[in-house]
Structures are given as C-alpha cells and as structure tokens.
Design a protein around this nucleic acid. Structure first.
Length: 252
DNA sequence: AGTCCGATTCGCT
DNA sequence: GCGAATCGGACTA
C-alpha cells in the first residue's frame, strides 16, 4: 500500500463520539478474524482531557518523500480563560494566537526566543490548547538527527533520546515551523497528523506542574497541567519524586 | 519608533 | 549550572 492510499483510508474513518475513550473497540467477525474499527482521534475535548488522551499516540510528519514519526510522551495543557500562563489569558486575541480559537485539532505553532518553535493542538475551550513537549522517535530518525545537527554550531552528534525531548527540539527534528504548520488542521492535513496506536498501552500517567512559566505567578505555575508517561525515558524533565510515589502505590 | 520579553536550547565553566 | 543567542509581536508614547 502506498503512503497516499494509507492517507486516504485514514481520512475515511468515522469520528469517535465516545468522549471517555479514543481506543478503538475490537470486534470478531464470523471467521474469527479480528476486525479493528480504527477511528480518527477526538480533539474536541477540554485541554486537560486531550493532553492525557494524546499520550501514547503517534505524531506523523511528512516532508517531501520523508516520513517522520514520534510517540507523544509528554504534554501540557493551556486552557486559556483565567490561566495566566496561557497566551489567550482572559480571552485575549491577537493575529498570532488565532489558531487557538479555531476548530479543535488545529495546530498552533509559534516562535519563541526568536529562534525556536513550539506546537500546540487546539482543544475545545476557546483559546485552549495542548503543548506537545516530547516525543519518542519511531521512524525517520536519521533524518531528524540530520536536521537537528544542521541547526547546531558544534555539529556534534545527538543521541536518539535527545532528538525530541523538548518542545522546540521536536519541532526542529520534524521541521515544524510557523510558516508551514500554523493553523494546519490535523484532522485533514496530508503533511501532519496524529495516529492512534492501539497496541501501545499507557500504563500510568504522571501529572505535575508545567515548565518554564514562572512568570505567570506561583498559583498558575504550580497547576498540575503537565502530563507524561510514567517511567518514560524520552520525557524532557521527569519528576522522580512523583514517580516514586506512584511506584510505592503499585507495591502496596 | 522604541522597548521589552519569551511555554528554549546550546555551549562553555 | 549559567549566560548568550536572536527576533516577531505586543505594548507604550
């Protein structure tokens, strides 16, 4: 099957209307073959739910003939409204944040520190989005490495583990830029989308505070709006104390 | 027109 | 661990 055929199949799938799960039900036919009803992901959910649902899913990026894939292992939600850390705090609108007010499942890509990009996926709240903070590289790894090293002065080698363990690292690795990807509809785009991976089970989710938003003040900086896959080695910053607590619970 | 600053990363100490 | 890099856009006057 060509990649184009795969893409067209993917787009024919029916949307999942069950808000509590995005895992496809597995049915058995008369011949006892397993028929899997693969569904497109549901994006129209509150950021806090979407952020957790996205864990374990696979972000796919096509650049020309190259396909890169990475499993989403770390996210943060920025729900807007009274969240001071959100760029859409108090419903503030500007040309740059417009993607966050668009249909859930729209990519919001912005430049930060004058040289890096970050990607969010808009959620159901007006002005709400989920930041993708880290991926486990799965496919196209050598291309990711090449693009990352190209951008560095030192040109020194990068371990696979370090290719996508940060929001701007993953954008560089997957060539996600504002000019190419902002306002992209991930439900219909042919160059970037998210796939379910029903074989991959998220064992446990670690929930902790968001990173790099001290300026928003203590109350909002401490909100438990960051989520990552427990024990995962591709996460940008692990909270080992939280992980220990989870480990203790598992034992008892 | 001028100022200020960031949802980060890199390279060096 | 710390400071520099680097620039678009929001905000002020």
């Amino acid at each position: 099957m060509t990649t184009q055929e795969k893409t067209s199949n993917r787009r024919k799938k029916k949307p999942n209307t069950d808000e509590t799960s995005t895992i496809a039900p597995v049915k058995k036919s008369k011949t006892n073959m397993i028929i899997k009803t693969i569904q497109t992901l549901v994006y129209d959910l509150p950021g806090k739910v979407l952020a957790q649902n996205l864990l374990g899913k696979v972000l796919v990026r096509k650049i020309g003939e190259t396909t890169c894939k990475g499993r989403i292992v770390e996210t943060e939600c920025y729900p807007g409204g009274d969240d001071k850390a959100s760029r859409t705090f108090n419903g503030k609108r500007s040309p740059t944040t417009e993607a966050l007010y668009m249909d859930a499942g729209t990519a919001y890509v912005y430049m930060t520190y004058g040289m890096y990009h970050c990607i969010n996926i808009s959620s159901s709240e007006p002005g709400g989005g989920v930041l993708i903070r880290a991926l486990e590289p799965l496919e196209g790894i050598e291309d990711m490495r090449k693009w990352r090293i190209d951008k560095m002065k030192s040109k020194k080698d990068i371990k696979t583990k370090d290719l996508c363990n940060g929001p701007s690292k993953l954008c560089t690795s997957l060539q996600i830029t504002k000019i190419d990807c902002n306002m992209m509809d991930l439900k219909t785009s042919e160059s970037m989308w998210i796939e379910d991976d029903p074989k991959f089970l998220v064992d446990e989710i670690v929930c902790t505070s968001r990173i790099g938003i001290a300026g928003a003040g203590k109350e909002w900086a401490e909100k438990p709006y960051r989520f990552y896959i427990y024990g995962n080695d591709y996460v940008s910053k692990r909270d080992l104390k939280k992980e220990e607590e989870i480990a203790d619970q598992k034992v008892s």
